[in-house]
Design a protein around this nucleic acid. Structure first.
Length: 445
RNA sequence: GGCUCUAUCGUCUAACGGUUAGGACGGAUCCUUCUCAAGGAUCAAAUCAGGGUUCGAUUCCCUGUAGAGUCACCA
């Protein structure tokens, strides 16, 4: 017997902006399908006409595009009414479902719905992460599977579609375990085979509650894009929420995740979404970026008013790339840093309080003398060799001869940046270049 | 409340009967150029409790406790 091809699916409903929590299930299904050279199907579950919106469908489509999770097939349930109808008719004929008269208690309720004739049995199924699970379906009663023949409900459409699309593995969160027995009942009624189930851990917030829509943590996925997170960072982080490959390596590319992913290593206990860890993972992926990619991101996040500063130019940004990136965990922070003026001194002469040039309890005369000796030492360095290594060498020689290095280093750095906190004077002078450095030091005198 | 599931540092987790219970994030301390950042080093930090089973339990079983999920004419 030949191996059955793996087919997985992810089925979001377009009733809100697709949030990060959902990414993990999508990812697991994607990884599993790719690992076994199977198919990954994306299905838009838009059977609820009042809550489903086209804009939300476009939204999750954009998320998949951004994350680079490619799907092999795409379906919209709202376009499959005829298929569901066919099954509904068949089950009606077989008396496995029936049209039920209802007492109308609330506005909007129908006087007639379609109910499933519950065989009231014990349903037992094997879950790849939870083991064997058993439910008495009697308590479910004759649950409703369609409003009417034209409008089937979730449990029914899911089962029909999974059957029609030959889904072999259903990987989802444990919030769905209690849905499983009734879906199995429907499967048995339409004669569908039972797929492999794998119910992963629930993603929790800091309060240990399931991520809910109004949780500040479950932001719409694209906000992460807008804030300069890397898809590979978010993917790596989400993959590790409730799964891990066992080793000590933590930073994985998408391809590596495909290689490593396995159902057996999915976790049972709920996993708390820890934003700080995301920051770290994302930063690790930033470090992995090639230089030109880093530049691209940096440039995208520099505010326009900075780009209009007198000495702004891309070459200078290129030189600043390391100090910019050292200070961030996602690129949006570059924008923040520029917005509060952190780096303006690189493109325009700083304005500062002269008194602050003086280090601790040194005198103005000493400070002047120190700056002067720095100037003459710096002048010796050729313009085309004005590197941080060279400036460091000459400046440190002077600094070490003083009673404390700060007597020299502080006024130099401050004269260059005008800031209490800034990168070190060596890298600043390299970025500024010999002329600008000397001129700012001169001015400080 | 019913049903179902879960339980290792604060967090994500490793250890699938035998380890000084490992790693990472975060935290603390120190070092590395005055400051900031990055980097390096070191430290603190856990097997929910009680019973079994076993020569031996984080690991298997039971009870308790705690937590989570779910109980729609939503998905």
């Amino acid at each position: 017997m030949s191996e059955q091809k793996v087919i997985t699916r992810f089925a979001p409903s377009p009733t809100g902006k697709f949030h990060v929590g959902g990414i993990r299930s999508a990812l697991y299904n994607y990884l599993y399908a790719r690992k076994y050279n199977g198919k990954f199907i994306l299905r838009c579950e838009d059977t609820d006409p009042v809550r489903s919106k086209k804009e939300y469908e476009d939204y999750f489509l954009d998320v998949f595009k951004w994350l680079g999770l490619e799907y092999d097939e795409y379906y919209r349930q709202s376009e499959r009414t005829e298929i569901y109808k066919k099954y509904l008719h068949k089950l009606l004929e077989e008396d496995k479902i029936y049209i039920s008269k209802e007492e109308v208690k609330e506005e909007g309720q129908r006087s007639e719905v379609i109910r499933f004739r519950n065989p009231n049995k014990i349903v037992t199924f094997r879950d790849e992460v939870l083991g064997e699970l058993s439910f008495n379906t009697t308590e479910l009663g004759d649950f409703i599977i369609a409003r009417d023949i034209e409008s089937p409900l979730y449990h029914f459409t899911v089962v029909v579609d999974d059957f029609e699309m030959n889904i072999t593995h259903i990987i989802r969160g444990q919030e769905h375990v209690s849905n499983t027995p009734r879906q199995i009942l429907i499967q048995e009624a339409i004669g569908a085979p039972r797929p492999v189930y794998a119910h992963g851990s629930v993603i929790l917030n800091e309060e240990r509650a399931k991520l809910s829509k109004r949780d500040p943590l479950v932001r719409p996925s694209l906000e992460y894009k807008d804030e300069g997170y890397l898809p590979q960072g978010l993917i790596n982080f989400m993959a590790f929420l409730g799964w891990n490959p066992g080793g000590e390596k933590e930073i994985f590319t998408l391809d590596e995740l495909i290689q490593e992913f396995s159902l057996e290593r999915m976790q049972k206990p709920g996993a708390i979404f820890n934003p700080e860890k995301l920051e770290w993972v994302n930063k690790e992926h930033i470090k992995l970026l090639p230089e030109n990619k880093k530049m691209e991101f940096i440039l995208n996040f520099i505010p326009d008013n900075v780009k209009n500063l007198p000495e702004f130019n891309n070459e200078r940004i290129q030189k600043m790339s390391n100090i910019l990136i050292d200070r961030i965990t996602h690129f949006g922070q570059i924008k923040e840093h520029f917005e509060i003026g952190e780096y303006n001194f690189f493109f325009t002469e700083p304005i500062y309080d002269k008194a602050k040039l003086i280090y601790k309890n040194t005198t103005a005369e000493q400070t002047n003398a120190n700056i002067n000796s720095a100037i003459s030492a710096l002048k010796e360095i050729p313009e085309n060799n004005f590197t941080k290594e060279n400036t460091k060498e000459v400046l440190m020689k002077i600094a070490d001869s003083l009673s404390s290095r700060g007597e020299l280093l502080h006024p130099i750095r401050f004269a260059l940046s005008g800031l209490d906190k800034s990168p070190d004077p060596f890298i600043i002078s390299e970025i500024l270049g010999k002329n600008e450095t000397l001129s700012r030091l001169q001015k400080a005198l």
